[in-house]
């Protein structure tokens, strides 16, 4: 690509940033106050933390589809993983192994805490799943976990569990009228159930994105 074209692209991108910035400075007041509407309905959502309420109740279908996308991405990564990636991990330094063995259970504990606290404070299934996945990556780096080439039946079940629980709850409450509208009395329990399934599946899926695609240097 010639320098003139490159300069033109950079210039156009800078123009885009300037136009976006000017548009932002010129925005009118929002017509709908979303935070107020969330706050007004928070009592019916089953949780006290607004972000969790939006994620798992008011806009739960977003989260449902997102988990499906996550699973699809992992299927894609697994389809690209080659068999020779399935070697056992090379043994790491004993110090790293010991550290990983000490820290991994603590990370599982933190994930459980984040899952539970998500109903009242910052936390929830995504953060808990991310911490679980980080524990998986750490164990992999320490050479304590093998790479995935072909996940077994149990692992596949764990990967799909979150989505299955979510869909099952969605079908079960379909009689209420609209999709994923929980009865307010049962909402808290249902959300915790979904989040528990999601934490496991998100953790496994995110860890799988690393464990399936990577291979250790021989």
């Amino acid at each position: 690509m010639s320098r003139a074209v490159a300069a033109l692209v950079v210039l156009l991108a800078a123009g885009l940033a300037a136009a976006l910035g000017l548009a932002m400075l010129d925005l009118p007041e929002p017509a709908v106050r979303l935070p107020a509407r969330v706050a007004a309905k928070l009592g019916d959502s089953g949780v006290d933390h607004p972000v969790t309420a939006v994620l798992l109740n008011f806009r739960a279908y977003d989260t449902l589809l997102e988990v499906a996308v996550l699973l699809l991405a992992l299927v894609g990564v697994l389809a690209l993983a080659r068999p020779h990636a399935a070697r056992a991990a090379a043994p790491a330094h004993p110090l790293l192994q010991t550290l990983a063995r000490l820290v991994a259970p603590l990370m599982v504990l933190v994930a459980g805490y984040l899952l539970w606290i998500g109903a009242h404070a910052p936390g929830g299934a995504f953060q808990a799943g991310a911490v679980l996945a980080a524990a998986g990556v750490l164990l992999r780096l320490a050479g304590l976990l093998p790479a995935w080439a072909q996940p077994g039946l149990l692992l596949r079940g764990g990967l799909a569990l979150g989505l299955l629980v979510f869909v099952a709850v969605a079908v079960a409450v379909l009689g209420q009228g609209s999709l994923l509208q929980y009865p307010p009395a049962a909402a808290g329990g249902l959300i915790l159930l979904i989040e528990a399934g999601l934490t496991l599946s998100i953790g496994l899926t995110l860890a799988g994105l690393y464990l399936a695609g990577t291979e250790v240097e021989p």
Partner: peptide
């Protein structure tokens, strides 16, 4: 909280796409 929740899902989708 509404855009915050959307961005939270967005981050997870972004890492899936990146992987």
């Amino acid at each position: 909280p509404v855009p915050q929740a959307m961005v939270l899902t967005g981050i997870v989708v972004a890492i899936a796409a990146t992987a």
